[in-house]
Design a protein around this nucleic acid. Sequence first.
DNA 1: CGAACGCATGTGAACGTGCACATGCGCATC
DNA 2: GATGCGCATGTGCACGTTCACATGCGTTCG
Lengths: 324, 324
Amino acid sequence: MARLAGVSHQTVSRVLNHHPSLRPETKQRVLDVMAELQYKPNRAARALVTSRSRTLGILAASSTQYGPASSIAAIETAARAAGYWVSTANIESSDAASIADGLEHLAAQSIEGLVVIAPQVRVFDTLAQLSIDVPFVTLQTTDRDLGPTLSVDQIAGARLATRHLIELGHRNIYHLAGPQDWIEAEARMRGFLDEMSAQDVATTAPILGDWTAEFGYYAGRELLTVRDFTAIFASNDQMALGLMHAVRDAGLDIPRDVSIVGFDDIPEAAHFWPPLTTVRQDFAEIGRRCVALLIGALDPSALEHRQSIVPELIVRGSTGAPSF
Amino acid sequence: MARLAGVSHQTVSRVLNHHPSLRPETKQRVLDVMAELQYKPNRAARALVTSRSRTLGILAASSTQYGPASSIAAIETAARAAGYWVSTANIESSDAASIADGLEHLAAQSIEGLVVIAPQVRVFDTLAQLSIDVPFVTLQTTDRDLGPTLSVDQIAGARLATRHLIELGHRNIYHLAGPQDWIEAEARMRGFLDEMSAQDVATTAPILGDWTAEFGYYAGRELLTVRDFTAIFASNDQMALGLMHAVRDAGLDIPRDVSIVGFDDIPEAAHFWPPLTTVRQDFAEIGRRCVALLIGALDPSALEHRQSIVPELIVRGSTGAPSF
DNA sequence: CGAACGCATGTGAACGTGCACATGCGCATC
DNA sequence: GATGCGCATGTGCACGTTCACATGCGTTCG
């Protein structure tokens, strides 16, 4: 007990909390003793009395993928800098039981804020059911008002990608979308459809995928049996990779026969063959903003981080004019 | 307070801890009230009185990469199943300050066990300096006795890859290694060197990389200016991807002119062009074993999880016999 | 010169849980 | 029928911290 070394426990507490009325020499003396004893304040005791856990929760699906993993890492870093801890719950399947389990695990440590990187709608239903009542953030662009949310302009990114293909001269463009319970997937699909109709290009129904290269490969094989298109916009880079694999397997050339665009700009995308044209998302920035939003909601001060993050089109070798 | 509903707080406590001497009807009554009130036991209070946090720490570098991310996810899942929480600290650079910061962050929540997925040696020095005294696990194959450790046989995996190339007839093989402060990288390099000398093949000095595709690309360009080799064994799949990019840029064919082997078998590897021959590691299993080991060390019972995980060579299109 | 104020520090209670011990009750044993 | 034992439950304290309040001392001001 550091307080054995000179002062009362309350003075120690004041030192820890940077109380203004402290004689510098007293403060220093306490600090010295703390250093000597390797004193560590007890987080549990503090949480107990303040009833603040200073913990943020992340509910994550697909946390092994580059995008989610990057956001998680950025969230952790930003939270740590702000003096918060982070606890993650990964859900493997997106069924209700799994979601509920993850949320309960987070609730059990009385998190003060929640970031959801996962299928959306069910999560919030479950959240309501469990009557977990914390501010939360999600990457979103829905109409629904889901409380404080962070707007990353997935729609704009998807429009960028689509416009690029149209400007190159493509008129038969498929979209390989992500799972529709992901808000990002839905937004990218909407961006694709919006741009297509804005430019008066006939649209085909998007194909619903699962984010994996494996799915992209099989979807590509399927599509190529008909081959009524000259370009595909995939909702992430992994699916784009699978598509490219299928296209090459069919003996076709990219981009001469088929142009392909991805989404995310994972670090490997620049080294695919051919290097992938894609939409860059700043996952780290997303993570940082999530934390800023949450902590803003917790320390109820300014909350004007609502400006959206603008994605960027990175043009590489996988797209070109169609050859007729 | 649930205890207002009939019984003493101690009885509630007994229900929570599955005490044997409880009349079933009493127990049920308490459970009913708990359900009705949505009662959640307070983790902080419990941690305070038991002085057990039930929290495992992960110190992670490169947590956005597939391998580390997979292990982290598996650790989280396994820990959750065992009733533990997980807290992650990501370190961006591997300098001492960053490591110390991460470890202090973990120590501040009095973690009971630590998994290190990061440059190794400095971590343990720092650990000692901060006199953090918890059991820890690391993926390792060093000679050093670093306490309870998990042995994943990286050496065997690397030998597998190297032997595959030698058996195909390659005699001029380079190794693109990972950063040498990573134990995995060191072990894979050792496996490569061991196998080369066991098979009496002349060895060239390994090139030290940084795990990224970008590095693989530039290393490949560099190597190709001389081109005194027919095969390269890269220490992970990302670097292998970069290498393949460089080889193609030079107008060469894979595997006719150059064979390439990776390590990890990330999900995308099967869809690279050509599909990558690589060594599969079961990251999820690694994560699970980490937790088993740590919890075994905490609840001091059996500790015989020491059998190592055997990696597997996956032969795909990126390797073939050399053409002379 | 005394009252009032502000600063630096101390005192005691409280947070919600688990542990050690105490209590009361029913049943078996002699 | 008294003694003792085991089961089911209750009582009080402790964990380490913060909060509200109390104390003592020096300074200012009417």
